[in-house]
Design a protein around this nucleic acid. Structure first.
Lengths: 204, 204, 204, 204
DNA sequence: TATGAATGAGAATTCATTCAT
DNA sequence: AATGAATGAATTCTCATTCAT
């Protein structure tokens, strides 16, 4: 018989994660302190430790929840479309429109990149990344590509895995550059890449 | 021991930077401690602070020196070639051969990516990145592209800046993915990208 | 323990300042360490830094609080007396009675002298000294002198500022010598000075 | 058979002590570093440790040498005068003329006060102070006073020790205030004190 | 003698986590 | 559940002193 509703608890957790996102984005995970989150969220230190058992748990939860939110929504939109080509175009356009991304998008991207980097040194984080984040992203593009191959829209001999990796490595690379350099031609690059990628993939 | 040769001092500095690279790569800049560098290098803490005035200075020097070493060498090799197409191919092949890159290469890449991330939160680092690291990389590719445009090898209407950014965003993106995911098809991706890029760039 | 009364927090602060006084007095500000204060007070290092943000802040607070306590009390006592001559005599007697002063008095005096010295090299300390410490002391003596001039007890042509400075320079000088040399004839000197000073000041 | 002449060694020592005086005055003994002295003197660290076995020894030597220099010279001048009254007047005038003292005078005074303070916490320093510094100063004034009593210039019943202490406690107090407060009326105070002191001391 | 690189104990300060209220 | 005071291990950096050259 909980004193506080599940609803309220989720609300509280979300509040903490939102603040954590802001703080980790601004200062980086290692430099940001629990006190930063306290100040940003207005929630006491003790309370934060009621909801999460460590700073690292906040980090992991943050990434899992954010990623899920973003890609679930995207998947729904993509599945509304009927051809692989349309889906592919939609995915590109969706990513192109992200710039000039919202502050939230930017925060998320920064934190995600740092997480990826940290994960290369920390087994627990790596597992989260592999199982949760990477998987979600790859499923989307692999889904579209195999759908296209099956439907005959895309080239039969297409190496799906390579093209899927190629897709995200370019997008992630561009997103990173875009975060780091103010005049980065994100739009142009993605548009260019869209046309190149489609030409390579679509059956001539 | 004093009144020691400049040679010896440079050797000592290099030793410290080498250890710093290993430590920063293994744990990340924030988590790695000066004591880690002490342990790894066998040089005392006091001595390290005789050569560098802060942990941050080690970080910056490390990036500047490493980058200079890598790209100076690369530039020399490229300049030996006479056509832009050969230079472009050489650059791709050079990058393709980097994988499965030495441990040192990997360490450098990891640290460089973390540096890029940190630089988005720290003006001093950002300046180093802009003035030193980014600049060096961009000059190489822009040099090749403009040489090709002038010589007539490449398309006249080529937007050099966009293609230069595109080139590195892809390479950096792939390098990052390669670092993070063991089965990343780095070779295939770069080869594919080489053929795509050349086709786009070379006058038909 | 949190959500603790303001009372308790003030008590804690006082405890830290008391220990700081003891430590700074015993070893000097620069030589005394935070660990000394930890050991003396039984309060953990982290806690001390919850109450004061630096060693220097402890120093400044210590001086301000101590001075305020001492001179506020003294001012109250002086204001109970109705003639400037009585006030002047009381002030001398009060200072004469300070010797052989309590340990606390001695500690305070030592720390105060060191603070004065440090303040000649540190703008922040100098400001505290000028605005808080010096001012408080000068107000007391200037108050008495001008009261005496107005009431006709003291010589009309008395240069109040000069005599005020003279008063404290002598007292502070004697206090310092007294601290430093065990057989210093503090009593006799102040009694002598009392009679000289009064004779010079009182209208013949 | 020394390689370097005694002359040269003394010259070197003096150079170090001069720099030490400047550094200790500017930053205080604890804060000033051997490297500060190295920088100021142009003499290497190793060399400094050839001439003095520790930072503290520099401190002690500095005080002893400076004090000796100052008071030896003063004693010579005083002994040229034939009456105690003239000597007393000369001493006052000498001290009055010290303000606006030279930078060197100021440095010496600051360092001397700090030394006095430190000596209250350090037996070795205390001994130096008692045996060397205090003694020298007291001898001068006690010499004059007893000469005056014997010659009949001064009051027979004069308590020489008390008046000697009183003299220096006032002078040192004023010197300290003068160092610390830019507008301190050092001249006026000493002139005033000169007339008071002489009146009290000279046989009516 | 002169040099200045090397050393490491020790300083101030921070911060994730705990826990009494 | 919520609070925020308390803790102390861990961090960066300093500096008197030593000693090989």
């Amino acid at each position: 018989m909980p004193i506080v509703s599940e609803e309220h608890k989720n609300q509280r957790k979300k509040q903490i994660l939102d603040s954590a996102l802001a703080c980790f984005s601004q200062k980086g995970y290692d430099v940001a302190t629990i006190d930063d989150i306290v100040k940003h969220s207005g929630i006491s230190k003790g309370s934060i430790y009621n909801y999460f058992k460590s700073k690292e748990e906040i980090y992991i939860d943050l990434l899992e929840v954010s990623t899920k939110n973003i890609y679930d929504e995207l998947t729904v939109q993509i599945n509304k479309l009927h051809t692989a080509i349309d889906q592919m175009k939609f995915l590109f356009d969706y990513l192109i429109d992200q710039d000039p991304s919202t502050e939230l998008q930017k925060d998320y991207s920064l934190v995600k990149f740092e997480f990826q980097l940290s994960s290369s040194r920390n087994e627990e984080l790596k597992e989260v990344l592999e199982n949760s984040l990477k998987d979600t992203k790859m499923k989307i593009i692999e889904g579209i590509l195999s759908k296209g191959v099956i439907s005959g829209e895309f080239r039969k001999e297409l190496n799906i895995e390579v093209y899927a990796e190629m897709f995200w490595s370019f997008v992630d690379g561009a997103t990173l550059q875009n975060l780091l350099f103010p005049n980065y031609p994100y739009h142009e690059l993605l548009k260019e890449q869209k046309s190149i990628f489609l030409k390579k993939v679509i059956k001539p």
